[in-house]
Write a protein that binds this DNA or RNA. Structure first.
Lengths: 123, 123
DNA sequence: TCGCTCTTCAACCAAATGGTTGACAACGGT
DNA sequence: ACCGTTGTCAACCATTTGGTTGAAGAGCGA
């Protein structure tokens, strides 16, 4: 895996178990054991998952006796959202322009939903 | 890797080369060769990357003679953004509440930035 | 101090990933 | 009809990943 933050964040969330944990942590902090509970895997495996999330900056752990409560870090989500939004918008604009062009070519007025040209447009 | 869409999308974007390609495709469609050009890898490797992006639903390919122009699919970005936003907001709200509680405990009025309690809060 | 609980570290294993090279299919230009 | 261009498929390789088990560190409670 690449070692830049964005790569680590995306890689961390590519695993459904880890996304599940994020879901759980959004409700409130939880210890490693509490996080491990719902899953049919060893505590060690969960510990590794948390390490991945922590390395990505998505969660951080504190100390409470033997326990290591995890909590979600919100800032990193912004990093992702910003990256995503940039290209989503550009792609959407290109689509809208394409729809407009198609509509003009057809003499249409109200282009509805985007449609692929290349395969299965006609039929 | 898990086989659900969200996992595929996150995994696809965990690679900086593939994110680069998305960046390139946001500007406009490009053939496999054009996408391969800036990188120091074989065309086959790029073809594989595109397959990963396509399987994730992030890009689609059309036919133009021997060429296979790729273009960005905007919808999938929404899927990610929605997933992310949900937990980012919840986490942020919890932080804000925590800051408020801390401020109240200190008798403060204007809590500025969140601060971790567990380690290095005092010093 | 001893034992129990919670967590991580280390070693190992199977499967997936990202890269390579070689072969080959599909298409246009000459 | 051929050749060059464009891209994918297949096989292979090194590394990473997600899981396991076993051992060990850290901290309370009795």
């Amino acid at each position: 895996m690449a070692d830049d933050q964005l790569s680590r964040v995306f890689a961390a969330l590519a695993d459904p178990t880890r996304r599940d944990m994020v879901t759980r942590l959004a409700v409130g902090d939880a210890t490693v054991g509490e996080l491990a509970d719902p899953y049919n895997v060893s505590v060690q495996a969960v510990s590794k998952h948390i390490k991945v999330l922590a390395d990505a900056g998505l969660v951080s752990q504190s100390k409470d006796a033997q326990r290591r409560p995890c909590h979600l870090e919100a800032e990193v989500f912004d990093l992702m959202t910003k990256w995503i939004e940039r290209y989503r918008q550009q792609a959407q604009e290109r689509y809208d322009r394409l729809d407009a062009v198609l509509a003009e070519m057809r003499g249409d007025e109200r282009p509805s939903k985007h449609r692929h040209l290349e395969q299965g447009a006609a039929s």
